[in-house]
Design a protein around this nucleic acid. Structure first.
Lengths: 131, 131, 131, 131
DNA sequence: GTGGTCTAGACCACC
DNA sequence: GTGGTCTAGACCACA
């Protein structure tokens, strides 16, 4: 359970936590039913405020990535939970388009980009289906 | 020159303008040396604060997408200006990774994603290489 | 005596137990004077803390649903015990209203809702009037 | 815009705000595109902390009830947004069942309950479809 | 012990 | 002016 949070980034701390948890789940580093560090534990480990961790955990629960059990802690969800929100899909589509254009301006070719994507999917391994 | 700005989105208005200008350039809708509307024109047309447009133009100029000629107006840069900032590349890589993971959670398959990408590059036409 | 407790729900465990006992009484699964499992039995069967079961039993006794006889155990009350607390009625009215509104937002029509209600009363059978 | 918040209730303040906004929308007291009081305004009017109001507004936005426009404020959504979350539906079903059983214990007959429901839907008027 | 809520007060980006 | 984020510190219910 190593988290890598950078307060200098413009992405909010709680979002960075969300991203990392989802990434670790997708990669199989965090397994279903595995216990996450408690809010207080993680917050002191990261040297950030407990509320910030709490906010991240609540959002992760809302997305179905984790479940919290009263008085016991938070755990990775048993089954992988996909959400079919059309608003979200549209948003993803938009940001993908934007990212491609930005990459174009940054001098990244289509081939390079495809290669990157391939690598991310490789890292996620078979977890894309079974998790 | 049609701008499609939505103030309800979480992306700031000035960024949306930047994105659209870059997109139109990439797609060949805006051509090198073409004149852009003035800050006042555009802001009244979009019913937004002139400062917002101004901020977008300033950032676009900083990125080398447009140039302002005092007393004449603002124009699309003559040559396509690519920036090889390694920090930017890393940032793009990160957000691409995150987007793939989010897409995974949104139930979007690798095939769908690849299809989307293909479509964006098609829209950009030959401009992706030569421009 | 099958209890269906889910620690992942936001409703506290002890409330879930209360609900289930009351439900089983209303449906006629638990009959007047029937013996309930002891606190220790039930807690080990459910793999939860004995205090939690104890709290549930205490509340059920306070509501007149069950009675504890020292040295003999706990039993379903002989007669159905209704409480005419006006504050409780008001509270129920409020939460009913809220539930209807939430259902409305969840895309549940009035017809569907009425159907659900009908089904619950059916499950409760004749017990709804006479018990 | 009158809010009626009771800190003595066990329902959290931010939930009470959420409920009231949704209720006012359903009843047609708040109309699409109408502006809500700003976070600071409402918090000082209710004599509660701005963060609490902010939390309520964020949840309402997540549910699609309101939209926030950067630097301008928050507004009732243009179109009524229904969410088809199966988890939510199941939750509503459960709490409906529980409410019926509790009503039964509180001495409320099926007829009374049905009457209550009828009254709520009347208050919502035609807004159930068009809003 | 766990997470959830609330307050007070600060800082920031955006418009 | 607007909302969004973060911190510090408090209290509470639940297990």
């Amino acid at each position: 359970m190593y988290f890598n949070i950078d307060p200098r980034k413009n992405t909010p701390l709680y979002e960075q936590i969300i991203h990392q948890v989802k990434e670790m789940c997708a990669k199989g580093i965090l397994l279903p039913n595995e216990k996450l560090p408690s809010v207080r534990e993680l917050s002191s480990q990261m040297v950030i405020n407990p509320n910030t961790v709490s906010k991240a955990y609540q959002e992760l629960e809302r997305q179905g990535v984790i479940v919290t059990i009263r008085g016991r802690g938070t755990f990775i969800s048993e089954e992988f939970h996909q959400t079919y929100d059309p608003r979200l899909v549209e948003k993803l589509k938009q940001s993908l388009k934007q990212m491609i254009i930005d990459s174009h301006y940054a001098g990244i070719s289509k081939e390079e980009l495809t290669e990157w994507i391939e690598k991310v999917y490789e890292e996620m391994g078979g977890n894309s289906d079974e998790n």
